[in-house]
Design a protein around this nucleic acid. Structure first.
Length: 128
DNA sequence: TTTCTAACA
DNA sequence: TGTTAGAA
């Protein structure tokens, strides 16, 4: 992990800052947090602390939700991310390109957005 | 003052 | 999701 990523992963931002940076309410931020969609840290006095990567994740979740996905569907998107990274590390196979990742995610996004039709042959094959 | 949890005239 | 009460 480079020094740059290390900084982006440092949880040092308090709730108020995250609210300003994301334009979301504390309620929404805590909700994503409680759902496990964001890994915030806590201070000794139980206050949440977020990193820049957390901010990106929060914004990402916001976008998915705006696109019509519900919390459960958003969770699945990241579960798949996790599984793919898990298998990637276990059996050192070829690196997965961003393009490929987006293809996998598109399937979930299509379904979530209601653009996916089970009996539509156009979606029968390909992604998974 | 800021943030937290829990709960709902 | 908003909002509020009461505590830290």
């Amino acid at each position: 992990m480079g020094e740059k990523e290390l900084r982006r992963s440092m949880a040092v931002l308090p709730m108020g800052t995250v609210m300003k940076l994301t334009s979301l309410t504390a309620r929404q931020i805590r909700y994503y947090d409680d759902c496990g969609l964001v890994k915030s840290k806590r201070t000794e006095s139980n206050r949440r602390l977020y990193s820049l990567n957390n901010i990106d994740r929060i914004l990402e979740v916001k976008d998915y939700l705006d696109e019509g996905m519900n919390i459960e569907q958003v969770k699945r998107v990241y579960e798949k991310q996790r599984r793919r990274l898990a298998s990637k590390n276990s059996n050192q196979r070829q690196t997965v390109s961003d393009k490929r990742v987006r293809e996998y995610l598109r399937d979930d996004i299509m379904k979530a957005g209601g653009f996916y039709v089970d009996n539509d042959p156009q979606f029968k094959q390909g992604y998974l």
